[in-house]
Design a protein around this nucleic acid. Sequence first.
DNA 1: ACCTGAACACCGTTCAAGT
DNA 2: ACCTGAACACCGTTCAAGT
Lengths: 313, 313
Amino acid sequence: MTTDPPRPPPYLRIAAEIRDRVESGALRPGDRVPSTRAITQEWGVAMATATKALATLRQEGLVRAVPGVGTVVVERERVRSPRAPGDPMRGEPALSRRRIIGTAIELADSEGLGALSMRRVATALSTSTMALYRHVPGKAELVRLMSDAVSGEEPMGAVPADWRAGLEHAARWMWRANGRHPWLATAMASFTRPAPAPDAMAYTEWVLHALRRTGLSPFAMMHCHLTLFAYVQGLAVAADLESQARQDTGLSDEEWLARNEPQFGAIVAGGAYPLLNTLFTQDEFDLDLDTLFEFGLRLTLDGIAAMIDETSA
Amino acid sequence: MTTDPPRPPPYLRIAAEIRDRVESGALRPGDRVPSTRAITQEWGVAMATATKALATLRQEGLVRAVPGVGTVVVERERVRSPRAPGDPMRGEPALSRRRIIGTAIELADSEGLGALSMRRVATALSTSTMALYRHVPGKAELVRLMSDAVSGEEPMGAVPADWRAGLEHAARWMWRANGRHPWLATAMASFTRPAPAPDAMAYTEWVLHALRRTGLSPFAMMHCHLTLFAYVQGLAVAADLESQARQDTGLSDEEWLARNEPQFGAIVAGGAYPLLNTLFTQDEFDLDLDTLFEFGLRLTLDGIAAMIDETSA
DNA sequence: ACCTGAACACCGTTCAAGT
DNA sequence: ACCTGAACACCGTTCAAGT
């Protein structure tokens, strides 16, 4: 009795076929490769297999996930072009802390903090893993440096005279930073042990400055700041989980809901959740995190306003 | 020229010496082993080395970290005693989904979600890693099952007539759950893609019920719920990071601050952060997360109250 | 001075083989 | 039917060796 020759698993076969299309030029840099859904239909495989096939190609660096667009063939020219984010400036050494941080941010932006590894950063910089340790003490500190770096990307501007305008501005600024870098909320240091990070401290200083004429005590000012900050962080973590889920599964919110509807239906049909049921069946209801952000921002600021009124009364 | 015989790294030498004390009976089950700080003094090593030595012993299962107490020798009798959390009930199969979840929760409680691995859960249950996959599809789903399980630990009770009393109760209930299980906030599913988890849905239903007589629209009710939820989650993630930092470094908040004071001082001394400086030098100021929780809870509920007033006016 | 390769002690998960 | 062991493709980090 002879055994069959070992055949590669389906996900590797699919990855190989897509790789061929890229190498033959059928798919060119910047082009979208088949989505996970397209793969399930074209090859007749399960979603998990399709996801793994794309993950393999991402791992190879042949394609990358672009949030909101899909998975596209990497543009190799761009990676090598002068002054791409990870490239050295004139006169700068080939490898520097700045370049390492920049490359790590790019990686975390496009694939999430879970995909960030020292080995992958090193590969993207065409160097050995251990060379990185000459510039950063380890991964934990690299992540801290990353969050500090993105905190300095957009200037916060002048502090308005009106405290409410100030806090609104600061919260939206933070929300935008989290939008650009979904991993930021997860990477953020704890409140009670703020790493000595100048940019993070600048944010707190800015907010305290906005509150300085409210008549609140330093204690209340700091606690108002942290309440708003915790709210933004909590929402940002949720947004990160969502964008991560979208990338991992390749499903949009609607597709995901359609897929899970039977299970929700079964639970809700039990009659135990009448109010949730009302919301679900009322199908004008779909949740948008930006809308929710503004809703909760207003709520929190109204709460602070009530406290200020009380204090000054 | 002869080479020295290879010597074990210091952290292994220290771990071996502590192990000897346990095996000789000098340290008995339940006793505290030397803290990281004690190790740095007794052996004259750096904090990192001390931390690694304890991590090695934890890894072996010889000791475990008890939050607020220190690292103690495990009580082997207790682990084997009938009806310890991970043990089978009479008539229950040796390995079950229930037991796996229970053991995983114990592990995450005492060492954090980062220390949770399928291999370690299997070892704690005296089985092979792959036997777990007969009961749970993978690690991601195990974590989801864990968070659903702890959501059902404490009954929420009857919904009060007063919406504000209701929301306070719910928020504190959630905050307590996060206190028992610091990893909960990080593990929590995203808002827009709630996994079909009955217990998590029960929480939302409870809160919506508390708000049913406020005159708010279903949209506003759901958004009020999510605003408060995001706030609690954001604070809980910070609390988790803090308890994690306390365990990783073996430093209490005060010790940590003392250690980092020079760096903060250098940054603040630049004069760029006058308000922060005022807070830091005013040394009656120390941050307590439970105090902050109640402060922000009141603020958020005041904001919701303002919205309800407006709606009913 | 700077970088590399091999090694160590881990991961989650697949698969074929055992009882 | 249930469990195991080996293997694969990863991790972060240490250390000794290279240029």
